[in-house]
């Protein structure tokens, strides 16, 4: 049973919108949480401005537990919590919640890695000029790491497009849902092809945007 493309385009358009919505919101929430976690990981490291072994180790182990779980399994495993927070496990909002959790842990690691690569001498200079730990975080660490950080977030965005498709297969809406119900379950190759092409275009756009912004920040 083939879809009627004259009436199906609006459906595709709507799903594309849902996918973009999920990705962007996840990116916003995930970045807020992830940058917070990443900064906390970095500043509590040994020898750093707010060294705290206990906080660092707990965060470190927690992230290492969550991150290796494949997203499709994490999505299902976390569904009781999703129901508790969002009220349902179906629809875009229900997809955004687990995506945000998964993304924030990935972003935390990316943020931490980028911060570690900052020359400690720059932090020392700021300290010598009388900067408080909080001032060091937002006037030195974040601006100095911003270029590579944008590239890291771009990488995450591409993964999120992937995540959103997976979330779609379990009732999250978006292009994944369309590809699954029309393309896979009804054997309509043309739907599959169109969704794949749209996903590729989205990934290309995200990567281009990320590259452009980071190049502007890093001036190269």
């Amino acid at each position: 049973m083939r879809v009627d493309w004259t009436t199906f385009w609006p459906r595709i358009l709507e799903s594309t919108g849902e996918t973009i919505f999920m990705v962007i919101l996840t990116l916003i929430f995930g970045s807020i949480l992830g940058i917070g976690f990443g900064l906390l990981l970095y500043v509590t490291r040994k020898g750093n401005i707010l060294e705290n072994q206990l906080v660092f180790q707990i965060m470190n182990i927690f992230i290492n537990i969550i991150r290796p779980i494949p997203f499709i399994i994490f999505l299902v495993a976390i569904s009781p919590l999703t129901r508790l927070v969002v009220g349902t496990t179906i629809g875009t909002w229900a997809a955004i919640f687990p995506m945000t959790i998964a993304a924030s842990f990935g972003i935390a690691r990316i943020v931490e890695n980028n911060l570690v690569s900052i020359d400690p001498g720059v932090v020392e200079a700021a300290k010598a000029m009388g900067a408080s730990p909080f001032q060091i975080i937002y006037t030195v660490l974040i601006p100095e790491a911003l270029g590579p950080l944008i590239l890291g977030l771009t990488f995450v965005t591409v993964s999120l497009i992937d995540f959103s498709a997976m979330a779609g297969t379990v009732g999250g809406g978006g292009l994944g849902h369309v590809a699954m119900t029309y393309g896979y379950q009804r054997f309509d190759g043309s739907v599959m092809l169109v969704t794949v092409i749209i996903l590729i275009i989205l990934v290309q756009l995200a990567q281009w945007l990320g590259n452009t912004i980071s190049r502007k920040i890093m001036r190269r």
Partner: peptide
């Protein structure tokens, strides 16, 4: 931190902020 402002420090590797211009570094 207030007293540290009365003790300027310079470094072997300069430790300038790469995200700021020359003026931005001096203004920091």
């Amino acid at each position: 931190r207030k007293l540290r402002r009365k003790i300027g420090m310079i470094f072997q590797n300069f430790n300038l902020f790469s995200s700021r211009t020359v003026a931005g570094n001096v203004a920091y």
